[in-house]
């Protein structure tokens, strides 16, 4: 089970929940599981979230594997000028 941590900026969309465990094998599965659990998080998941898997940051990487015991952090994606 991967340990999933959500940035506090996402709390308004998850009724305050920011830590959970989910049996997911990649980022796409993680996003699907989160969208089921927190429908109001769906727009953010579709648009503007990045993940850090054990400290390595991924943006737009639905197929990126999530190892079983890893720590995954979700937070807003970055663009730039």
């Amino acid at each position: 089970m991967a340990k999933i941590l959500l940035s506090s900026s996402l709390a308004p969309f998850t009724d305050g929940e920011t830590a959970l465990e989910l049996p997911v094998a990649n980022v796409g599965q993680l996003f699907q599981a989160l969208a089921c659990r927190y429908p109001r998080l769906q727009p953010s998941l579709a648009a503007d979230l990045a993940v850090a898997i054990d400290g390595e940051i991924y943006q737009d990487a639905l197929l990126q594997a999530i190892p079983g015991d890893s720590e995954v952090f979700l937070f807003p994606k970055i663009a730039g000028g």
Binding site: S8, S9, A52, I57, F73, L74, F75, P76
Partner: peptide
Amino acid sequence: TYYGPKLG
């Protein structure tokens, strides 16, 4: 960090 992951 306060927004997300630990810094590399």
